[in-house]
Structure formats: structure tokens, C-alpha cells
Amino acid sequence: MLEVRDLTARYGASQALFGVDLTVAEGQAVALMGRNGMGKTTTVKAICRIIPSQGTLTLEGKDLHRLPSFRVARLGVGLVPEGRRCFRDLTVRENLLATARPGDWTLQSVTALFPRLGERAGQRAASLSGGEQQMLAIGRALMTNPRLLILDEATEGLAPIIRQEIWAAIARLRQETGMAILLIDKSIRELAQVSDRAVIVERGQTVWQGAMSDLTPEITERFVGV
């Protein structure tokens, strides 16, 4: 489905990616791992065409390099960005409706996945807790009816009980929809539970990729530092 090969990217004069390789097959969940500052978020930004990049970047054979960011999203790439960034002045309901595209995901199905969003439908996004904002960011991405969902640090900085709730929702997404997911997170235990494969980047390069079951403690200690 998503194929990334030898991806390079730079922020002005400073090069951030030196050759990232990763693939996400239909219905597969892939964990993108690595220490802080190694290029995980930059890879996601390049996939979503938020920053320019070079190399192979295709979604179902279509070259994403030729497309602006909004076209990539319309092709079916839904991003839950690091830091949530909900539309603060809009209510929960309006946040979800603003991004809605035709498909199975509707206001009802999103609020069924995250009942808290249903309870706070009329509340402004700015007044939600961090965890609720994160749920809203995931719901907003789902409302675009993506075929590939990218979650960038979806549980970062959240209370353990909220993290559990979000991981449970991700597991439900996997079981019930079979949606392809690319995950970035620091919780290796939870990543291992929901992911089929793992890709590890270090200094802007893919240094390991394989089945989650092949990811040994030695590899994670060496490349992820855990």
C-alpha cells in the first residue's frame, strides 16, 4: 500500500533523512521506532508532503511527490499529528464535521469509538483535557475516512488511564476495520501488542525492519535505548 524507499529530506541546509525505507501493506499495522530526534516525525511529515523530500514515496503505486498535502490526505492518508493541534475555536462536533469525507466513519461511529467525544460534542476543543484532545485528533483523522492512519505519538504526555483508553481504541480499529496503521510511540509493549511489523530509524536511516515477533530485546536496547 505505502512504499517508502531511500527517502531523504532536509530542513533548509540541514539534512534530516538520509535514506528511510518502509512499507505498509493493506490492513497491516507498522510501528515506526527510534530514539528522539532520529527522524520518525520527519518521515511522517515527508509522507504527508508537509515537507519536501526525495526518493520513492508511493501510495498504491501513485507517486505522492507529485501531490500537495491535501491531495495526499484525499487519497486516504489520515494523520494524527504530534501535539494534537485541534481547531481550538470549534466545538468537538464542529471539529469532526469540518474534516468529514464520505465513508463508513461518521459522527456516530467516531463517538461510538470515543464516547467521551459524544459527551462533549458541544464543548469547544480548547476546553478539553489533553487526552480528550488526542481522542478528538484521532476522531478528526478518522472522519476523513482514511485507508492508512498515521498516529504520531498519540499517547505522549497522557495519564495512564487515558493511554489505556487510546490503546484500546487503536486495538479496536485493528480488529474491527482492518485499517492500515503506521504508529510512532515510545511504549514498546503496547506497540508490540497492536503492530505486525516494526521499522527502526536511526540518524535518518532505516537500520532494522521485520516482523514484530522478531524484535528482540537486544535490538530494541541497541536502537531504541529501552
Binding site: 508537509i50 498535502s69 481547531f87 481550538r88 475555536d89 469525507r101 476523513t144
Partner: peptide, 16 residues
């Protein structure tokens, strides 16, 4: 309204 608040983010949800 969303485009006013976070212009870059609306692109990633498929809006021009």
C-alpha cells in the same frame, strides 16, 4: 474557520 486557526493542519485532513 479551521483553515484560519491551523492552516497547515487542514491540508493534512484533505482540505485545500
Amino acid at each position: 474557520n479551521a483553515a484560519r486557526q491551523v492552516p497547515q493542519r487542514v491540508e493534512t485532513v484533505g482540505l485545500n
